[in-house]
C-alpha cells in the first residue's frame, strides 16, 4: 500500500511538471512578448519607450535567453513564490491573485458542501421512494436545475431581489467592508453574502448529483445484502443508511479531484454576473487583455489543484473501499 502511495506521488509530481510546461507555453503563445505588451500599455497612456529601453527591459527580464532557460527562470520564481508581473494590473501576480484565491476557495467549498448536503439526502429519498410524488417533484426540479443555465438564474435572482427587496445581492461584501482589513465584522458580513451566490453556483451540480446518487442507490438497493440486513431485524432506515447508502457513496470519492477546478472554471460567468471577487473573472480578463503571466499562473494553479485533488481522492478511495485496499496488498 505504501508502495502504491509512493508511486502515486511520483506520478503526481511528473504531472505537475508537465502542467507547468504547458502553462509556460500558454504564457508564450501570443505574438510578441511581455515587453511589447508593456510598451503598448505605456504608449496607450501617452508615454514613450525607446528601443534601447525596450532592449534593456528584455535583458532585465531575461527575454533574450533561450526558451528553456526562460522556463527555468520562471519556474524557479514560481517555486519561490514569485509568479511574475501582471501587465494589466501593474502589480506582481501573487498580489493580484492574493485574496481572490481564498475567496474562490471559500465560495467553492461552500458551494460543494451545499450541493452535497442537498443532493445526497434528496438522492437517497428519491431512490428509496422511487416513483413517489416527492421523487417526481425532485426529478422535475433537478432537470430544471440542469437545463436552466445558472448565470440566467443568477440574473433572475439579481433582478427580483433588486425589484422586490431593493437589495443588491452582488459581491461578497457590503460596501463598508469592501476595503477594510479582516475583522469579525467582515467575516460575518461575508457569511451573510455567501449563501445566495453559493446556492446559485451549487444548483447545476446539485441536480447532477441527485441523479447520480439516485441511480447508484437504486442499483444497491436491489442487492442481496440489503435483504440480509433486513432479515436480521434492523430498522429500515438503519439498513439503508448503513449498507446501500454506504456503497452508493463510494463512487463520489473519485470525483473529489475534479470538483474544485470545475467549480472555479464553471463559475466564471456567474462570478461576473454577481461580481464575485474570485479567480474566475480574473482568468477571463487576463486572457482578454493578454496578461499572460497572470493567465499562466492561474492555469498552473488550476492544474496543480486538479492533481492534488485527484491524489486526495485516490487516498480517500483507498480508505473507503476495502476491496481496493485488499487488491493493493494482495
Amino acid at each position: 500500500m505504501l508502495a502504491y502511495i509512493f508511486r502515486r506521488l511520483i506520478f503526481a509530481a511528473a504531472t505537475t511538471v508537465a502542467i507547468s510546461v504547458i502553462a509556460f507555453v500558454i504564457i508564450q503563445l501570443p505574438p510578441g512578448d511581455f515587453v511589447d505588451a508593456y510598451i503598448a500599455s505605456i504608449s496607450a497612456t501617452g508615454g514613450q519607450v525607446s528601443l534601447a529601453e525596450a532592449e534593456g527591459l528584455r535583458i532585465q527580464f531575461g527575454l533574450d535567453r533561450p526558451m528553456y532557460l526562460q522556463y527555468f527562470a520562471w519556474i524557479t520564481g514560481v517555486v519561490q513564490g514569485d509568479f511574475g508581473f501582471s501587465v494589466e494590473w501593474r502589480r506582481p501576480v501573487s498580489e493580484v491573485i492574493g485574496d481572490r484565491l481564498w475567496m474562490t476557495v471559500i465560495i467553492s467549498v461552500f458551494a460543494i458542501l451545499l450541493s452535497w448536503g442537498l443532493a445526497l439526502p434528496i438522492g437517497i429519498y428519491s431512490a428509496v421512494r422511487q416513483y413517489s410524488i416527492g421523487d417526481y417533484v425532485f426529478t422535475f426540479v433537478g432537470f430544471f436545475g440542469l437545463a436552466v443555465p445558472n448565470f440566467l438564474l443568477a440574473l433572475i435572482i439579481l433582478y427580483f431581489s433588486f425589484v422586490l427587496f431593493g437589495a443588491n445581492v452582488g459581491g461578497l461584501f457590503s460596501a463598508e467592508y469592501q476595503l477594510e482589513p479582516w475583522s469579525w465584522g467582515k467575516v460575518w458580513d461575508l457569511a451573510k453574502h455567501l449563501p445566495l451566490p453559493g446556492l446559485i453556483l451549487a444548483i447545476g451540480g446539485t441536480a447532477q448529483l441527485i441523479r447520480i446518487m439516485r441511480a447508484n442507490l437504486l442499483d444497491e438497493l436491489r442487492k442481496p445484502y440489503v435483504v440480509t440486513a433486513r432479515a436480521k431485524g434492523m430498522r429500515e432506515s438503519r439498513v439503508i443508511l448503513k449498507y446501500p447508502v454506504r456503497a452508493a457513496l463510494n463512487p463520489f470519492a473519485s470525483t473529489i479531484g475534479y470538483l474544485f477546478p470545475f467549480v472555479v472554471s464553471g463559475s466564471i460567468i456567474i462570478s461576473l454576473v454577481l461580481s464575485l471577487p474570485t479567480v474566475g473573472p480574473l482568468l477571463l480578463r487576463s486572457l482578454v487583455a493578454q496578461d499572460m503571466q497572470l493567465a499562466g499562473t492561474i492555469v498552473l494553479m488550476l492544474g496543480v489543484l486538479t492533481v492534488i485533488g485527484t491524489f486526495i481522492s485516490d487516498l480517500v478511495l483507498m480508505w473507503v473501499d476495502p476491496r481496493l485496499r485488499a487488491g493493493l496488498d494482495g
Partner: peptide, 20 residues
C-alpha cells in the same frame, strides 16, 4: 426477525456488504 426466524440465502458473496 433475526431473533426467532433467521434467513440464510444464496449468493453468500453478495449477501454480505463488501464495505464492512
Amino acid at each position: 426477525r433475526g431473533a426467532e426466524i433467521a434467513l440464510v440465502f444464496q449468493e453468500p458473496m453478495s449477501s454480505f456488504s463488501a464495505y464492512h
